[in-house]
Amino acid sequence: MSLVLVADDEPAVLEVLSQVVEDLGHDVLRARDGEEALGLARARRPQLVVTDHMMPRLSGVELCRRLRQEALLKDVPIILLSAVLPQGAPEASAFLHKPFEITDFESVIRQSLAAAPRPEPVDVGSPVEVLGQWVAQTLQGPLDAARAQLKQLESVPTADRATLASLDAQLQAMEALGRNLKDVARLAAGGVALQPVEADLAQHLLGAVTAWRAHAPVTLVASTEPVSVRFDPERIRQVFDVLLANAVKQDGGRGEVTVELQASRSLVTVQVKDRGPGFPEEEVPRLFAPFQTGSAGAAGLGFYVASELARLHGGALSAVSRPGQGSTFSLLLPRGG
């Protein structure tokens, strides 16, 4: 039994081809376009790829070329199906011109699998890791297309600016979700390596707050003295952004977001406070668990990533929240001295 990836944007054709492969005794991965097929191939490493040529986002020929560029997929046989390419493409291992007989399709499936190299078993990772990588990869194509279309709309003088701003916010949320899913996958695999430096945490916090002031009023309460801590600037900025994004959203533009920095010889605490609706008390203990449902919504995945990044720094992330009284998120980081 082999794993076969079948890609076709016509649902009826996809179902027929997949059924034929299953009747031959193989497992099937189904993809509705080239980008989805590429993401599935990277995540699951099939023994054979069957792809139509005329597909949205990524054509069959371009999918062949992209697969040939992947170190782990370059030797996987590919059957290309097309009604417009009379001779197929050199990147494909086999070619069938549409329309074709099912018996011909079955024959080329058998021949391709018989000639396919048998890869050594590999650990594809936990289900969470595989799912995170695949979803993040699959999301990227439509998000890039939507972002390009939004830029075109922004140049139209008669476009409704409030609607465009709302679309931009939704795209940012989806892009953040994709980034968080990638980080969840890396965290699950133990693949997040910090690059710590000794630096002034106060200056980095000021930079994050300044950036978020473009979206809403944020008050920073901190000493002017430097706060030297050993940390990964990129990853700690990621934690700041998760907490500030949540606070600005929860506050609803009322200008009651406050960020406080406190430091002792052994510990630094950054608190991000809002006066929004808060979270139900029963949800607070679960805010930092992955894939939780509730009022946190997609932001909960960001909380999980932020808490894991804090843990990798030897610190911790906690929250206190009550309905109607807002929330306080606290980042604790150790320091020497």
Rank of each mutant, 00 (worst) to 15 (best):
Asp104Gly: 06
Leu113Ile: 07
Ala41Pro: 02
Ala71Ser: 13
Leu38Thr: 02
Gly34Asn: 05
Ser93Ala: 14
Glu35Ala: 15
Pro119Leu: 15
Arg30Ser: 09
Ala115Gln: 15
Pro142Thr: 09
Leu67Val: 03
Arg65Met: 13
Leu80Gly: 01
Thr103Ile: 05
Val84Tyr: 10
Leu29Arg: 09
Arg118Lys: 15
Val50Thr: 02
Pro99Glu: 11
Gln47Phe: 06
His26Glu: 00
Arg65Thr: 03
Leu143Phe: 13
Arg42Asn: 09
Leu48Gln: 06
Phe95Glu: 09
Cys64Tyr: 05
Leu131Cys: 04
Arg42Ile: 01
Val49Gln: 04
Gln133Thr: 13
Gly88Thr: 10
Leu85Glu: 03
Trp134Asp: 07
Leu63Asn: 08
Gly132Ala: 11
Ala43Val: 07
Ser93Trp: 14
Arg42Val: 04
Gln87Gly: 02
Asp23Glu: 15
Val49Lys: 02
Ser93Leu: 00
Leu131Asp: 08
Val128Asp: 12
Ala136Gln: 05
Ala114Val: 00
Glu91His: 02
Ile102Glu: 13
Val108Tyr: 11
Ala41Leu: 04
Thr51His: 12
Pro127Val: 06
Ser82Met: 10
Ile102Pro: 00
Ala116Ile: 08
Glu106Arg: 14
Asp123Ser: 04
Ala31Asn: 03
Ala94Thr: 03
His97Ser: 15
Glu129Val: 03
Leu96Arg: 06
Leu38Gly: 03
Gln133Trp: 05
Ala114Pro: 00
Leu139Phe: 15
Pro77Arg: 06
Ser112Tyr: 12
Leu81Thr: 01
Gly132Gln: 10
Pro77Ser: 06
Ser82Lys: 07
Thr103Arg: 15
Leu139Ile: 09
Gln47Arg: 14
Ala43Ser: 12
Arg110Cys: 05
Leu29Trp: 08
Ala83Thr: 00
Leu81Ile: 07
Ser93Arg: 08
Arg30Glu: 09
Gln137Glu: 15
Pro142Lys: 06
Ala89Lys: 01
Gln133Asp: 14
Gly88Glu: 13
Thr138Asn: 08
Pro77Asn: 06
Ser107Leu: 10
Phe95Ser: 10
Asp75Ala: 11
Gln140Tyr: 06
Ser112Asn: 12
Glu106Trp: 07
Val49Met: 06
Asp104Asn: 14
Gln133Ser: 12
Ala37Gly: 03
Arg66Tyr: 12
Met54Tyr: 10
Asp33Thr: 02
Glu36Thr: 05
Leu24Trp: 07
Gln137Phe: 10
Pro117Leu: 08
Val122Cys: 11
Arg65Glu: 15
Arg42Trp: 12
Leu113Arg: 12
Leu24Val: 00
Leu63Val: 00
Leu80Gln: 02
Thr103Leu: 13
Leu72Gln: 13
Arg57Ser: 11
Arg44Val: 00
Arg110Ala: 10
Cys64Asp: 07
Leu29Tyr: 13
Arg45Ser: 13
Val108Gln: 14
Phe105Trp: 13
Glu70Ile: 00
Leu24His: 01
Val61Gln: 02
Glu120Asn: 09
